[in-house]
Design a protein around this nucleic acid. Sequence first.
DNA 1: CAAATTGTTGATTAACTCACTCATGTTTAC
DNA 2: GTAAACATGAGTGAGTTAATCAACAATTTG
Lengths: 144, 144
Amino acid sequence: MKFSKKSEYGLRALLELTRAYGSTTLQRHDIAVRQHIPVEFLEQILLALKRAGLLSSKRGAKGGYRLIKQPKDISLGSVIRILDGPLAPIGCVSKTAYQKCSDCPYANHAHCPVQQVMGSVRDAIADILDNYTLADFAAGSKHT
Amino acid sequence: MKFSKKSEYGLRALLELTRAYGSTTLQRHDIAVRQHIPVEFLEQILLALKRAGLLSSKRGAKGGYRLIKQPKDISLGSVIRILDGPLAPIGCVSKTAYQKCSDCPYANHAHCPVQQVMGSVRDAIADILDNYTLADFAAGSKHT
DNA sequence: CAAATTGTTGATTAACTCACTCATGTTTAC
DNA sequence: GTAAACATGAGTGAGTTAATCAACAATTTG
């Protein structure tokens, strides 16, 4: 039940990009040094975030990455879904990537005990992460 | 961010054992058939739960497993910790198995943004799973 | 006692994922 | 044109997951 390094690095990279939002672009090298992330691995992450529409990049000398959405409009939940997949602890309670459980004797029943608990776990996680934005994150707290 | 099959199977097996609590013992074979779990894999799970003090077993013909603690005294959280390890989404916010993060530039600071969010995620998950017992689970709902 | 039944233990496995790493491109600034 | 930077895809070693297998130990029943 862990988040991957990919998500963790992704969030830490976005922390740097949020701080630079509106002013400068950041190069992968600088982000990597500041956050102690292996450069080549970081690149995969930045590209995934770019493909998902969070970042833009500029090639060549003086290039770099920057946020193209406002920090207050990007939730940590959406970032983690991009990098790590669904938040749900088991497939059959995912709202963004539902998967029928193959072997459960309660499959297709709404009264599966596992689904009931895991559903509320999913909701609790999503409630936090989908309402916590990069702006909150960079500020070090969630403002209500 | 998923729970393993081991945890899922473990919970489903305990569902059967909770239903049989106080009356009969259940053999691994019967549990496996009712819950569609591979017998040999189920055995590893039952033995882990036995070592953890939740089950007792009897060998030989007419043998089997049974719960030795009351269903209302076993939380789903404790079961998952036995089978899957800590609930925390990253090591540095685990209360039962804390691990210092090696590469985080905020390590040792109480103000690490990642720790703040992940800490509240951990608490939300633990709040649910540590207060949900096998009795609630078998009843199909949490009674307050 | 013998045979059948069941739990116990440990080793082994195939498939997969994670966290990188490498090689090779392509674009841009100067 | 050349150095700096992003882009892409392939590859890799370590570890995990989900089983599977083999051999053994204890108990009951005939």
